[in-house]
C-alpha cells in the first residue's frame, strides 16, 4: 500500500496568547498531516485550541513558531485558498442569499457574469432555487447553514475548514446537512478538516481523526477510521462504528462503559 500524498503538513506549530499575568500557551508543537482528499476530524477537550489551529491555517492568526507546508512548499498561511465555515452561519444580513453566495467570488474578482451563473448553478444544485432574493433572516437555521456551505464550496477552495458547522442545529437537520456535505465532498473532490465536539459525527464522516490533548495542545493520537460507508446514516449503522466511538471517548477520558 503506497503511502498517501500529503497535501498540508503542520510541523511544530506553537502559539501562545498574552494573558493578564502570564501568556497562555495554546498550541505546543502541533504536528500532523492532511492527505490529498482527506477528511480529518480534530477532536479534543474544550478550549484546547482547535479553533486556533484553523485560524492559523486560514491566516487569521500568526503562529509563534513552526512551519506549514502545502504540497511540499512552505507557506505562511492558506489565506484565500481555504473555505472557512463556522458554527455561526455568518451570512451577511444585508445581502440576499444570492449575494451571500457571490461574496467570495466578488472578493476574488471573478467576472460578475460568470460569478452569477456559478452562484445560481450551486444554489439550484443544493435545492435553494427560488430563495435567491430572500434575506437570511427569512430562512430557517438549516437553510442558512446550507447557504453558508454553498458560499464556502462555490469558491472551490483547496481545503475546507469546518469549525463545528452543524453544532447549533437540531439532530435531524444535522444528519441531513452531513449528508449534503459528504455528497459535495465526493462530487467536488474536496479535502476537509472538521473541528467537532461530537465524536459521533467525527467517526461517521471522517477518514481519520486527530485527537488533541488538553491545553497546551499536542497531538495525542491519530486514528484511521475504516468504515465502508461515510454517508451519515450508513456509517452509524456499521458494526465497527461503536468500537471507534468508544476508543475515541476513552482517548478523551469520557467514561462510556461501566468497566473497572
Amino acid at each position: 500500500m503506497s503511502s498517501p500524498k500529503v497535501q498540508l503538513r503542520l510541523n511544530g506549530i506553537r502559539k501562545s496568547f498574552p494573558g493578564k499575568e502570564a501568556a497562555t500557551q495554546v498550541l505546543d508543537g502541533l504536528t500532523f498531516d492532511i492527505h490529498e482528499r482527506d477528511f480529518v476530524s480534530i477532536i479534543g477537550p474544550s478550549g484546547c485550541g482547535k479553533t486556533t489551529v484553523f485560524n492559523i491555517i486560514a491566516g487569521l492568526v500568526d503562529p509563534d513558531d513552526g512551519v506549514m507546508l502545502y504540497r511540499g512548499q512552505e507557506v505562511e498561511s492558506l489565506r484565500g485558498r481555504v473555505g472557512y465555515m463556522m458554527q455561526k452561519d455568518l451570512l451577511f444580513p444585508w445581502r440576499t442569499v444570492l449575494d451571500n453566495v457571490l461574496l467570495g467570488l466578488e472578493t476574488k474578482g471573478i467576472d460578475p457574469k460568470r460569478a452569477l451563473d456559478t452562484a445560481r448553478e450551486y444554489l439550484s444544485t443544493f435545492g435553494l432555487s427560488g430563495f435567491e432574493n430572500s434575506y437570511p433572516k427569512m430562512l430557517s437555521g438549516g437553510m442558512r447553514q446550507r447557504v453558508a456551505l454553498i458560499r464556502t464550496l462555490v469558491l472551490d477552495p483547496d481545503i475546507l475548514l469546518l469549525d463545528e458547522p452543524f453544532s447549533a442545529l437540531d439532530y435531524q437537520t444535522r444528519l441531513y446537512l452531513e449528508g449534503i456535505l459528504m455528497e459535495a465532498v465526493e462530487t467536488f473532490h474536496k479535502t476537509v478538516i472538521l473541528v467537532t465536539h461530537d465524536i459521533d459525527e467525527a467517526v461517521a464522516l471522517s477518514k481519520r481523526v486527530v485527537v488533541l490533548s488538553q491545553r497546551p495542545a499536542r497531538v495525542k493520537a491519530v486514528h484511521d477510521i475504516a468504515l465502508n460507508e461515510h454517508s451519515p446514516i450508513a456509517a452509524r449503522s456499521d458494526p465497527r462504528f461503536s468500537g471507534y466511538f468508544h476508543t475515541l471517548c476513552a482517548e478523551l477520558d469520557i467514561q462510556t462503559r461501566k468497566s473497572a
Partner: peptide
Amino acid sequence: DKDLQALLFSMGASKQQIFKRVIAP
C-alpha cells in the same frame, strides 16, 4: 462583526474590500 471580517479575510479580502463589504454596510 469581527467574525464577518475574519471570514472575508480568510477568503483573501483586502482591507479595502473588508471596508466596502462589511464595515460600510
